[in-house]
């Protein structure tokens, strides 16, 4: 069980790190990575939940959630990459934050 707690704590650490990054990093690519780090944190906790009972077969529902979550996160990341790529092409900037809001 101790290792599971360790995993959970790592998950939370990842989630919080990512959360900070999404809000406070300007560079688009780094922000996207921060977003994925958040996701990784959540997925880690999901794995822990599925594996709590060491003897029996792991709980398949969190696994399915995990798979779905990964696909969704990948889709969103790809979408974001497309926008970011286009944005960088047009503006030559790597972040949206210094941009004027109007």
């Amino acid at each position: 069980m101790d290792s599971l707690i360790l995993y959970s704590l790592a998950g939370i650490l990842l989630f919080c790190t990512g959360l900070y990054g999404v809000f406070f990093i300007a560079h688009l690519l780094k922000r996207l990575m921060a977003m994925n780090i958040m996701a990784a944190g959540v997925f880690l906790i999901l794995i822990v939940i599925a594996r709590r009972n060491a003897e029996a077969f792991p709980d398949p529902v969190p696994h399915a959630m995990l798979l779905t979550g990964i696909v969704v996160a990948v889709s969103a990341t790809a979408f974001a990459c497309a926008i970011a790529r286009r944005y960088v092409d047009i503006t030559g900037r790597t972040g949206v934050d210094e941009e004027d809001a109007s």
Partner: peptide, 19 residues
């Protein structure tokens, strides 16, 4: 993070899932 850690430590050890 602290708040979440505290919460996660309270998670039940017995699997309450849908296995």
């Amino acid at each position: 993070a602290i708040w979440l850690v505290r919460a996660v430590l309270a998670m039940p050890v017995e699997p309450g899932g849908l296995t």
